[in-house]
């Protein structure tokens, strides 16, 4: 996954929808962390799993 700064900044701009504030001086570090986390998330998401594979934490009633 290739993510350019502008794409990541658009994601950071949505933080306000959650009530989170990301001042400009924090952007570079948040962007760097976002790039790493999204890259790893995409690698995991690319792994084919059967539809029947349950998430690991299964609630027990």
């Amino acid at each position: 996954m290739t993510l350019d700064d502008a794409e990541l900044d658009r994601m950071i701009a949505t933080a306000g929808l959650q009530g989170l504030s990301v001042p400009a001086e924090w952007h570079a570090a948040v962007r760097a962390n976002l790039r790493v986390t999204l890259t790893r998330a995409a690698e995991v998401a690319a792994f084919p799993l059967p539809d029947t594979t349950e998430p690991a934490p299964v609630f027990v009633a």
Partner: peptide
């Protein structure tokens, strides 16, 4: 803050 911006499908897929 970066973690808060990760889409939910990625989290479920990781689990």
């Amino acid at each position: 803050l970066a973690g808060a911006l990760i889409p939910a499908p990625y989290v479920v897929q990781a689990q």
